[in-house]
Write a protein that binds this DNA or RNA. Structure first.
Lengths: 234, 234
DNA sequence: TGCCGACTTCTTGTCGACAAGAAAAATACA
DNA sequence: TGTATTTTTCTTGTCGACAAGAAGTCGGCA
C-alpha cells in the first residue's frame, strides 16, 4: 500500500480530525476489518504526523467504542458484538421511532428540504443498485430526520447506532435482494408525508414498522450466514 | 490550594484514568464551575505528570462534552446549556421509562439486591438530609436499574444524562424542600416492586410519573431562580 | 486623546526521544 | 526433545522541549 496522504503541511490542529475521520470511515466501511491491529508508528508515517496527534485521534475513536486498546500491548479495531445484537436492535428501533416522532412534532423551515435531498440520494443509490450507497444514504436520510427532531442526545446516539449498523450490513450486503430497497423508498416517502403533516402517531407507527423491517432483514442475513457456516463445519 | 496528589509514582497507564475521573467528578460536582479555564500546565504540576497524559484525559472529557476546547486558545469547563433544557428533559424522561421497563422485563439474579443497596443509600441520605448525597445516590439507584435492563446503549446515555442533571441540580440544591425526597423514597420502592413482579406496564408508568415529578422539580427551581434574577434586574 | 499596528506573552499543538511492559525468540537445562 | 528461563524486540506510555497561534500590551501616529 502506497497511500501517503503527506500532501501538504497541515494547518495546526487540522491533522487530528483528518486522522480521526479517515480512520472512522475506514473502520465503518470495514476497510479496516474488526480485529485489525492499529499501529501508531505506521499511521504516523502514513499521515506524516508525529505519534502525538495520531494518539489523540485514537483516544477519540476508543471513546466511541470503535477501537479497543489492550493496555501496554496493542490496539485493534473493535469486534462486532453479535451477542449484544438484541440490545442493539432494541436501541435502534427506539431511536427510529423517537426521532421520527420528534421530527413530526418539531420540524422547522428547511428541514423537509434537507430530508428530501437525502431521500433523493437514497433513491439514486437504489436505482443504480449501489448497495453500499444505499446503506450510507439510508443512514444520512434518517439522521436528517433526527436533526429535524431537534434533540442532540438522540441525534448522537442514533448516529452511533446507524454507523454500527453500517458495519454489520457491510458484512452481509452481498445477499441484498432487489425488492426490499424499493419498498424502503416507499416507506421513506410515507414517513416524509407524515412528518410534513405533523402526524406524530402515524410517524411513530411508520418508523416502528420500518425499524422492524430492517431489523428482520439484518437478522435474516445473519441467521442465513450462520446456517451457511454451520453447514460447512458439520 | 495545596492539593498535590503527587503521592507515589503511578503505574504506567493508571495516571490517565485518575486524572480523567478526578476532573470528571470535580466538573459534575461543580467544584470546577462551568466556564472555568482548564490549564494543562497547572494540571501537569498538580498530578505530577507530563502534559501528554493530561491531554489524553482532556480529550476524553471533551468527547463526553464535559469540557469545550477553543482551538489554539483555551479549554474551559462546558457551560450548562439552559436553552437545550427541553431536549434534555425529553431524553431524560425517555431513559427513565425505557430503563425501568427493561429492568422489569430482563432483570436477573442479583440485580434486585444491587438496586436495593442503592435504594438504602438513598434512604440514608434522605434521613440525614444530605442533599448532595441524595442527588448522587438517586443517580446510582437509577443506573443500577438501567444495568438490570441489560442494554449498554441506554446505560451509557442515561449515565451521561443523570450526570448532566447532577450539575444542574447542584446549582439549585439549596432550595430543596423536605417533602419531595421522602416521596421519592416511596416511588423508588414502588418501582422496585413493579420490577420484581416483572410488571412492565406498571414499571413504565411509575417511571414516567417519577420522571415528570423530577423534571417539574428542576423546572420550578430554575424558573424560581430566573424570577429572582429578573427581580434584581428590573 | 483615540485608534491602529508591532511586539510580547501565554497556552495549546506537535515533535522526537526515552522508558516500561508484554509477547516472541533464543537459550539453558533436564 | 521438551520445558523453563532469560533475552530480545516491538509497541505503547510518558516526557521535556519547541513551534504556532491568539490575546493582551505597548508604542506610534493622526
Amino acid at each position: 500500500m502506497d497511500e501517503t496522504e503527506k500532501l501538504q503541511t497541515h494547518r495546526r490542529g487540522s491533522g487530528v480530525s483528518t486522522v480521526y475521520e479517515t480512520l472512522r470511515n475506514e473502520i465503518i466501511e470495514l476497510k479496516l476489518p474488526p480485529g485489525s491491529p492499529i499501529d501508531e508508528q505506521q499511521l504516523s508515517d502514513r499521515f506524516a504526523l508525529s505519534r502525538t496527534p495520531i494518539r489523540e485521534a485514537l483516544v477519540r475513536l476508543a471513546a466511541e467504542g470503535l477501537i479497543t486498546t489492550l493496555t501496554n500491548r496493542a490496539t485493534i479495531v473493535s469486534n462486532i458484538d453479535f451477542l449484544g445484537l438484541p440490545e442493539f436492535f432494541d436501541a435502534l428501533t427506539l431511536m427510529y421511532r423517537v426521532t421520527t416522532r420528534l421530527a413530526a412534532a418539531n420540524h422547522a423551515e428547511g428541514d423537509i428540504a434537507a430530508i428530501r435531498v437525502e431521500q433523493k440520494a437514497f433513491e439514486a443509490a437504489v436505482a443504480e443498485r449501489d448497495v453500499l450507497g444505499m446503506i450510507s444514504t439510508n443512514r444520512d436520510f434518517h439522521i436528517a430526520i433526527a436533526r429535524a427532531g431537534r434533540n442532540r442526545y438522540y441525534v448522537e446516539l442514533f448516529t452511533r447506532l446507524l454507523d454500527e449498523g453500517r458495519r454489520i450490513l457491510r458484512l452481509y450486503y452481498s445477499s441484498f435482494n432487489d425488492i426490499l430497497p424499493r419498498q424502503y423508498v416507499g416507506e421513506h416517502e410515507e414517513m416524509i408525508q407524515a412528518i410534513i403533516h405533523r402526524d406524530v402517531v402515524l410517524a411513530d407507527s411508520l418508523a416502528s414498522a420500518h425499524a422492524d423491517q430492517i431489523v428482520r432483514q439484518i437478522r435474516s442475513y445473519i441467521t442465513a450466514d450462520s446456517r451457511h457456516n454451520a453447514g460447512l463445519v458439520l
